[in-house]
Design a protein around this nucleic acid. Sequence first.
DNA 1: ATCCATCTTTAGTCTCGTCTAAACTTCTGT
DNA 2: ACAGAAGTTTAGACGAGACTAAAGATGGAT
Lengths: 242, 242
Amino acid sequence: MAHTRTSSKANPTDRRSGPASEAVEDYVKAIYAIAERGQGAVSTTALAERLGVAPSSVTAMCRRLDEMGLSKHEPYRGVELTPAGQHLALEVIRHHRLIELFLVEALGMPWDRVHDEAEVLEHYISEEVERRIAERLGDPARDPHGDPIPSPDFDVAADRTVPLSALDVGRTGRFTRVSDSDSRMLRYLDARDIRPGALLVVRGVEPFGGPVRVEVGGVEYALGPELVARMRVEAEPADAVS
Amino acid sequence: MAHTRTSSKANPTDRRSGPASEAVEDYVKAIYAIAERGQGAVSTTALAERLGVAPSSVTAMCRRLDEMGLSKHEPYRGVELTPAGQHLALEVIRHHRLIELFLVEALGMPWDRVHDEAEVLEHYISEEVERRIAERLGDPARDPHGDPIPSPDFDVAADRTVPLSALDVGRTGRFTRVSDSDSRMLRYLDARDIRPGALLVVRGVEPFGGPVRVEVGGVEYALGPELVARMRVEAEPADAVS
DNA sequence: ATCCATCTTTAGTCTCGTCTAAACTTCTGT
DNA sequence: ACAGAAGTTTAGACGAGACTAAAGATGGAT
């Protein structure tokens, strides 16, 4: 009866049904994201930190997630998603990335501001709107930051990228994404016309935490090491544009 | 800290700040809608019925609304919105109607399915997205059901419409809206190409709760009395298309 | 092998928004 | 003028999701 999406109402014993709340979706997404890089179970503190929440809250939520069949929580050992949990995570990530791209394409919203908006809306669009957005965008494979958009049946394109910092001097890479979108980084790159798809040539690396000299479209930039660690590229064959 | 929109966290004594929760927005919108037609304060039961909630829940929420400065609740006498409450209601209604139109225009979603989607999203789009949607649609005055879209500064176009049921036989009216969108009615009208803007001529009224015979685009339809009471038209001068 | 720092969980509390049951107003009809 | 019906509010409870404080587990260094 109530309009909130979280109320289940049906059979109180059956926690497995009903739509997931915003909090549940956020936890599942966070577990997925942390598990993605870094193997094995996800620690309580890592999760708490990422979600900006007390560790004890994580423990409590993990119990609920377990009851819902979304995760397996081994006390003191961390938590892992079940297949159902992974599906939910991918569903939410798909929503997030489709919304980001849609906001850029349909509303001309700048690259660096779509993340926060998608962070909210991802929980509230219907499956029908998801489908229609995907259709309107031509079933895109990547969002505006270059992150892959999971397919409706939970396939994720394999990631063939490496951090720009891993590229040797002289090598060329196609800039594909900046992991874990930080608005300041995006604005910085945007202002220099460095966008996914651009070809980067590593011209040199300054020592002692110094910048990486990178050539993009004939112009050379000195990019800070933190940024370079977050920028991911697909390495081009060594004999490409030099 | 928390990601939920409802947590205030700042200064616990100052209830007036912070974004309104989904529930608060729903209550304010419902109070506004009921107050609109039907004068004076809004009764607890009317509100409870509209929101699908127990009357005692309404009383409790009204206290909170009062503390937030959004309403004035006179015990046993009903509740009225303060100016701040009216602004919030119009803000939410503006979101709702812009989203409805946007879903139709940008995603080709059918007329009768946009209401439920907007009912959720209205609480979650940012002001920036609101602005960009309005801009993309050319600052529209009406949503797909013909309801007026409040301006960003809370002006609502005066309603010059009457129920179709109030139109005398022989008179012509321009169909402008169907009040309180019911998906089944919308599908019914849609299937007959009766959409806002269409000119209707009342050909006759059958007695004893019988249908109203209405001509639209050269075709005559017999519309049930419940439907006719919900359809609102702008009466055309008596000497118009006859 | 054990001790201690760190991580994790338990225990208890809080707010929001809901509920049911019971008590209280208000209004209407006689 | 007042009894009863209808409408409203209070009282007490609950689930979700958060918090703090305290207790318990783990594992690395000695």
